[in-house]
Write a protein that binds this DNA or RNA. Structure first.
Lengths: 153, 153
DNA sequence: TTCCATGCAAAGGGTTTGCACTCTC
DNA sequence: GAGAGTGCAAACCCTTTGCATGGAA
């Protein structure tokens, strides 16, 4: 069901990608997709707008926001909610988790493969699981290995 | 190290609670604490402001935001980042996870006890773990048990 | 008295909205 | 040509800021 990351694509391939996901094709959506699927990455809406315009795409802020939501709804993108100040859009749509460093704003993916969560309690009746998010919140280590936290390998 | 939830407390007990956490005591901080620790709950800043004022506390918005941040920094409260539109403050500070229903805005706690996450990869060197957040994102089930998601018990 | 804390109102920043215009099909 | 999509700018909402006043010790 879930596809591989599309990778850098030309206009024709992006058109096909949108059609395959039942998304109407427009110049702006192609431009946004071009920015996004150039490589695996995490971008916020404002960054997508800036990059699209840096490529001379004629696109408005409202359209970028509309398009990102559309892509999420149609399964081309996933939203990552880790930073209270903005939403990240992640080109990785296969199951995975995140490492987030609030002090640097850096967000990284961890494949879900090999990770197991045991002991989750049953949900209330009448409830479906959309997804399970795991976020490892980190911060840079001080000079030496300090107390109060677990050091990375 | 981590205390039990303080529970509903009178002014004197709240004063002691603040002092124990190295927080200067003021009328406004007592008022905010009174709202928060009345019971285990998840409140956003605006809700705390509204409830404090509903109790005739003379408190400004800025002070509520300052106080909540202070309480978090001193370990009286935890922040929950699950909703892009606001930060929740959780009176539960022992390790635990969350269930969030975006369609209703309902947030619930799950004790960490009994939950095990296996297979997390090593972190980059020079990185410390602050904490690991797990959020189970749910939505209300349609009429009958539908396909495409895992039903609750 | 001294400094930290508070209040006020405005600024800030990401996101959404309303409506007229434009383009895709 | 019809309807979906777009652009613009302002509105929105939570949160933060600057600075003068007020209160705790």
């Amino acid at each position: 069901m879930v596809e591989e990351f599309p990778g850098p694509l030309d206009s024709a391939a992006l058109t096909a990608l949108l059609r395959r996901h039942d998304i109407g094709v427009t110049r702006q959506r192609i431009a946004v997709a071009q920015v996004l699927f150039e490589r695996r990455q995490h971008l916020c809406a404002e960054a997508v707008l800036a990059r699209a315009r840096a490529r001379n795409a004629r696109v408005s802020r409202a359209t970028v926001y509309n398009t990102l939501k559309l892509f999420v709804d149609h399964g081309l993108l996933s939203e990552v909610i880790v930073d209270p100040s903005r939403i990240f859009f992640d080109t990785e749509i296969r199951p995975h988790y995140h490492v987030f460093d609030a002090s640097t704003g850096k967000l990284a993916d961890i494949p879900a493969e090999g990770i197991e969560v045991k002991g989750l309690p049953p949900l209330p009746a009448g409830t479906l699981i959309d997804r399970v998010d795991i976020v490892i919140r980190t911060r840079p280590a001080p000079r030496e290995a300090g107390p109060g936290a677990v050091a990375g390998a």
